[in-house]
Design a protein around this nucleic acid. Structure first.
Length: 200
DNA sequence: ACCGAGATTGCG
DNA sequence: GCAATCTCGGTC
């Protein structure tokens, strides 16, 4: 049974974020598959969401990819050190994206370990910066369409039996929005994402 | 032009 | 607890 590509990227970020839980993020590096199951996501709608890079329609050299059509990659550098991978959602020009915050490592564990240096397997892909490093995702992939051409795509997986929601990490109390983070909560991988806690 | 804070991480 | 050090918005 061959894997089906995930395709429903044009829905709003608030719907895409939970829908992505359980699907498989795949990176092809020189023909080698490195992949993991998505277990933690955050929605970043644009518009009046003060926590979003695209708030108020702000458009810069860094966040331009956010305004592409759903199904593109938005990769940015944070703290001058780490890359964060987002799946652009919605329609062209809307400026919505879903941040992928954690994976359960499934394939290419040796390649992940090699890129992550000294790290326990549990921490290989736990955190946005860590999974970007493990899958060799950086600014070169920014604004690329997800798919075989870019060597980065998403395959349909298994829906979690249980999902928990909580506020986004690191934003504090931003406006009237409380729960915009989703975590796969089944027993076998609950420990692979960040526990619920209000940032800062 | 300068400065502080940020969707983070690893080391002390 | 803090340094690493890019990007951007606010302020001077």
């Amino acid at each position: 049974m061959s894997p089906r590509p995930f395709g429903a990227f044009s829905i709003p970020a608030l719907e895409l974020a939970p829908a992505l839980l359980g699907s498989i993020l795949v990176r092809s590096i020189n023909g080698t598959r490195v992949a993991g199951r998505i277990v933690e996501t955050e929605a970043y709608p644009g518009g009046d969401d003060l926590g979003s890079h695209s708030r108020g329609g702000r458009r810069t050299a860094r966040n331009g990819a956010m305004f592409l059509a759903g199904g593109h990659a938005y990769v940015y550098l944070i703290y001058g050190m780490h890359h964060c991978f987002n799946v652009v959602s919605g329609r062209d020009g809307e400026g919505e994206a879903v941040l992928i915050r954690a994976l359960e490592p499934l394939e290419g564990l040796d390649a992940m370990r090699a890129r992550r240096g000294r790290s326990g397997d549990r921490d290989l892909c736990r955190g946005p910066g860590r999974l970007a490093a493990a899958l060799e995702i950086d600014r070169k992939l920014d604004a690329r369409r997800l798919g075989g051409q870019s060597g980065l795509w998403i395959e349909c997986g298994t829906a979690p039996r249980k999902i928990v929601t909580s506020p986004r990490i690191g934003l504090g109390e931003v406006g009237p929005w409380a729960s915009r983070r989703w975590r796969w909560c089944d027993a076998e991988s609950i420990h692979l994402s960040r526990p619920a806690r209000i940032g800062r």
